[in-house]
Simulated scan of single mutants.
Amino acid sequence: MILRVRLGILLLAVLITSSACSLLPDQTPQRTFLLPATTQPASSEPSLDMTLRLETPRAARLLASPRILVRPNRQEISVYAGTRWNDDAPVLLRDRLIEAFRQDGRLATVVGEGSRVQSDLTLSSDLGAFQSEYNGDQAPQAVIRLDVQLLDESNRNVVASRRFDVRQQSDSPQLESVVDAFGLAADELAIQLVDWTLANTDD
């Protein structure tokens, strides 16, 4: 009887302690960053009556996450502690590229992979890098590497393919500066990708 009472008291103490701990805030606050964007001017050229679909880039598990990655040297990959993007990196980049095509205006319709709209062309891609990298004592660079294939949806043939490798130096090692560099790198990638796609698109 005494043993049962002691076990009951012990169990109650454990439950109370667990409840109290669950109410405490995390020890390390999580900072969430948006990918900065610069509004690009719309093209004055007439729209092409075509629909382009952008698929979410494929990526390795480490890249396919909201973690903000940093490569302090060639042999090591790490993350900025207590920080994250507001979405997985491939999704962030896909949404940025869709918006860039829509702002450019030369294609009549641009949709994501979830749309039921029938498309004429599809951009399929593999994300090979979305990280900051250090080179000696300099401030880190934001690095985005994307291997792209432009597909004809009528036969799924590859119309063109290219690797885009964009690097943007940050003003300082501070995380806010690194995030700004990611935004500028994404802007530059979008400009290059839009122009390349249009150059390989038949009216």
Rank of each mutant, 00 (worst) to 15 (best):
D120H: 03
G114M: 10
P41R: 00
Q75F: 11
D126F: 05
Y134W: 12
R145C: 09
L62N: 05
D104E: 10
A142N: 04
N155L: 09
L23T: 08
E76R: 04
L54W: 00
V194L: 06
T201H: 01
T56L: 06
L23C: 13
V166N: 02
F182A: 15
L151P: 12
Q138F: 13
L34K: 05
D137M: 15
T39Y: 02
P25H: 02
L54Y: 01
A190R: 00
A100D: 02
N73D: 14
I68V: 07
R31I: 15
E113L: 11
A160D: 08
V148Y: 01
F182W: 07
R31M: 15
P72S: 12
P140S: 09
V70C: 13
Q138M: 12
N200T: 00
T17H: 04
Q192Y: 04
R74W: 12
V117L: 12
L97F: 03
V159K: 02
P46I: 03
A190W: 00
A64C: 06
D104H: 04
S19F: 05
W196D: 01
A60K: 00
D95V: 03
L107I: 08
N157K: 12
D87V: 05
L107C: 07
V148D: 01
R145D: 10
F101N: 04
E55R: 00
L15N: 07
L184F: 07
G112V: 07
D26C: 13
L48K: 01
V111M: 11
L189D: 03
Q192P: 05
D49C: 10
I77L: 15
D187L: 14
Q168K: 09
D95I: 04
T32P: 15
T17M: 14
S154A: 14
G114F: 04
A81P: 12
C21Q: 03
S18Y: 01
V79T: 07
D147T: 04
L93D: 03
A199H: 00
L23A: 14
S65V: 10
R116N: 11
G105L: 05
R6A: 14
T38I: 10
N86H: 03
P25Q: 04
C21T: 03
D165R: 03
A139R: 03
T201W: 01
Q103H: 06
L193C: 06
G136V: 10
V179A: 09
W196S: 02
